[in-house]
Amino acid sequence: MNGEPGSGPDPSVHQLRLLLVLAEELHFGRAAARLYISQPAFSRQIRRLEDHLGLVLLERSTRRVRLTAAGEALLPRVRAMVEAADRLREAVRAQAGTLAGRLVLGCYITALPVITTLAERLRERHPGLDVVLREVDFVEQTTALLEGRVDAVLAYAPMPPGVQTLPLATERQVVCLWEGHPLAGRTSVSLAELAGLPVVGSSPRVARVWRDFWAADPRPDGTPVTYTAHEATTFEAGISAVSRGLGIRFVSASCRELFPRPGIRYVDVPDAPVCTAVLAWSSARRDTPEVAALRRVVGGMVGMGGTHPNPRWWHTEHTESEGD
C-alpha cells in the first residue's frame, strides 16, 4: 500500500458494502456466497478497498479472518456511509415519481400460491419494479429480513424485535402425528393429551419467540416442552421426522389440505392458540419505496377472498405491528 492513509481515491459504496458483510461473516467464502459473487472477485474488491484507504482492515490466516483495530474503528463510519447512500437512492426515486428497482419477496413453501398472485399485482401496478421471489426457511424468514437479503416475507407470526408485520389471516393450529401413533386416529386432541410427546427440534438459529409459539412451549400449565435432537429449518424436514415416529409438530390447519403426506396425520388441537399469517419487513426499511408499495398492494388485497386456494390467508383486517 502506497501513500498516506486516506490519500488515495474514495472507495466505492459497493466496496464498503462488501466490508460490512465480511465483518459479519468473518469468512470470505460465506460472505461471497451471501452476495452471489465469486470469492476471488470478492477478495480483490476488499484488497482494492484497503489500497484506497491505505490501511489494513483485516487479519487473514488459513484458519480465520478478523478485523484489525483499524477495521473495527472504521466500521461504524462505513455503515453510516452505506446507509446514507441507500437513503440518497431512495430519495432520488421518490423525486422521480416512478418506482423502478428490485423487490425481493421471500416466502416459505406454504405461501407459494398467494405470493404468486401478490407478485403479479405488484408487476401490474409497478411495471418498472423487478419482483424477485425467493423461498426462505424458518431461519431465513427473519435473518434474511434483518440482514437486508430480502425486502419482505410472507410467513407466520410471531416475529422477533426489529420486524414489523401486517396481519393477513388467522387459522387454527393442528398437530402432525405419525400415522401409527395411538392419537392419530382421533378427530381432535388437547394440549394436555400431547404432554410428554417430544416436539421435533428446530435449529437454534430459528428465532426463539417463533420456535416457542410453534411448539406450544411452555404448555398452559407451565410445563416446558421436550424436544428431539433434530435441528429442522424447513417444513419438510419437520414432517419427515414425524413420519418416522420421532416426534410431533404443530402446523397451520391449511397444511392438511396443501401437504397430505404418507405416514402422517393432521389432528385438530382446539385449545391451541390460533396462528396468524403475516407480511413482514424490517422496521428499518418500512418506508423504502419498494416496501411501501408492497404494503399498499397487500393492504388492498386483504379480505378480498378467492385469491388463494385457502382464502383464510386474506380474512382479517390489517394493522401494522412490531414483532414481540
Rank of each mutant, 00 (worst) to 15 (best):
15 Q>L: 09
17 R>M: 13
19 L>D: 08
21 V>E: 12
22 L>A: 10
26 L>S: 07
28 F>S: 11
32 A>E: 08
33 A>W: 01
44 R>D: 13
45 Q>F: 02
46 I>S: 04
49 L>C: 09
60 R>K: 15
64 R>P: 00
64 R>I: 06
65 V>G: 07
68 T>F: 10
73 A>W: 10
75 L>D: 10
83 E>I: 05
91 A>M: 07
102 R>H: 14
108 Y>P: 00
119 A>M: 15
129 L>G: 07
139 V>L: 07
141 Q>D: 08
150 V>M: 10
172 R>N: 04
178 W>R: 05
178 W>P: 06
182 P>I: 03
191 L>T: 07
196 G>F: 05
203 S>Q: 08
209 V>C: 04
210 W>L: 09
210 W>S: 02
220 P>R: 04
225 V>M: 04
229 A>E: 15
234 T>F: 04
237 A>Q: 14
239 I>D: 00
240 S>Y: 09
245 G>H: 00
246 L>W: 06
251 V>F: 01
252 S>I: 12
256 R>L: 04
257 E>F: 13
258 L>S: 11
264 I>A: 03
270 P>K: 07
273 P>A: 11
273 P>G: 09
284 A>Q: 13
285 R>D: 14
288 T>W: 04
298 V>I: 14
298 V>Q: 02
299 G>K: 02
302 V>I: 14
311 P>M: 08
320 E>A: 09
